[in-house]
């Protein structure tokens, strides 16, 4: 009797089950074929020697090769150096800009955000074309400026100690908009009574900033730091399009190395292994990000 009732309830639920399956099917199909399958296939590739036609299992050789080759460590170092420029610049810059525009009119605020966001929605190739024209040492703006000043052209793109900071600064202009928008929204949403209370207690502006405002927006700052790190660990476009990895591989970043190994040298196995290493590094950062975002607080 009880079983019959159970069965009846199940049958009643059958249309609902079908509905759920039908609505999830497109997503499931997409994710199975183009996300999950490539992920496991990528793990498999990283243990194989892959040529255009054949594939042979060779165990850990790709990983050993990766760690033995100096180019991998160089790319790690290059990425690290660029991040060393971009992350402080982006975090401090977004704080500075947000605090400065906080008291300005809404229109001015919006104008700033739009102007900063413009490079982010523009194709990187376009920016690379313009930047090449600005920073080349043989033609373009920088060269002719130097000419006017009567000094030797600055070798922005051929002197590694200038190229790395330059790439960092350009990457910053590309991705500072989102942090600015997030931080300034956080400041706008802050509880004003905290500031009033601290003013009544005799805190000056600097003390307010340090002891009230900054702690109040700390989650946002942490979020910005993590997302910036995730983004900048995979700097690719600007070195690829502007410097070509040069001078002397000083700007070959990790993702660029993966690209080179796969699509310039055809060594897919090695590139797959390096991609997996990058995947693990960024996976750890993503776990951190998960804890700070709204997405992490579902249900």
């Amino acid at each position: 009797m009880k079983q019959a009732a159970q069965l009846k309830r199940d049958r009643k639920k059958l249309p609902e089950m079908l509905f759920i399956i039908a609505f999830l099917a497109p997503w499931m199909a997409d994710i199975l074929v183009f996300k999950i399958y490539p992920f496991f296939y990528g793990i498999y590739i990283s243990f194989c020697k892959v040529t255009y036609k054949s594939m042979k299992f060779i165990g850990l050789k790709n990983y050993i090769d990766t760690f033995e080759r100096s180019l991998f460590w160089d790319s790690l170092l290059a990425t690290f150096k660029i991040c060393l420029v971009t992350i402080p610049l982006i975090v401090l810059g977004s704080l500075l800009i947000s605090f400065t525009i906080h008291h300005c009119s809404k229109r001015f605020k919006n104008m700033t955000k739009v102007a900063l966001y413009l490079p982010a929605v523009t194709s990187e190739i376009v920016l690379a074309i313009v930047w090449k024209n600005m920073f080349s040492s043989s033609f373009g703006l920088s060269a002719s400026m130097c000419n006017i000043l009567g000094i030797k052209p600055i070798e922005w793109l051929t002197n590694a100690s200038l190229t790395v900071p330059l790439v960092g600064v350009l990457v910053t202009t590309l991705c500072i908009a989102q942090p600015v928008i997030l931080v300034s929204t956080a400041i706008d949403n802050m509880n004003e009574s905290l500031l009033e209370a601290s003013a009544l207690d005799g805190a000056n502006k600097l003390q307010q900033l340090w002891h009230v405002t900054l702690p109040a927006i700390r989650p946002t700052i942490a979020f910005v730091m993590i997302t910036t790190t995730i983004g900048n660990l995979q700097v690719f476009y600007i070195p690829f399009l502007l410097t070509g990895g040069g001078p002397e591989n000083a700007t070959v970043t990790m993702l660029y190395l993966v690209y080179k190994n796969a699509f310039e040298y055809g060594n897919y196995g090695l590139a797959g292994a390096q991609g997996m290493i990058l995947f693990v590094v960024i996976g750890i950062m993503v776990c951190l990000q998960y804890r700070f975002t709204r997405a992490g607080s579902v249900d």
């Binding site: 995730i230 993966v258 590139a271 995947f279 993503v286 997405a295």
Partner: peptide, 13 residues
């Protein structure tokens, strides 16, 4: 959250 570029090579294969 996982950037797509990370699976560049497997996606291509």
């Amino acid at each position: 959250m996982m950037p797509r570029q990370l699976l560049l090579v497997p996606n291509f294969m």
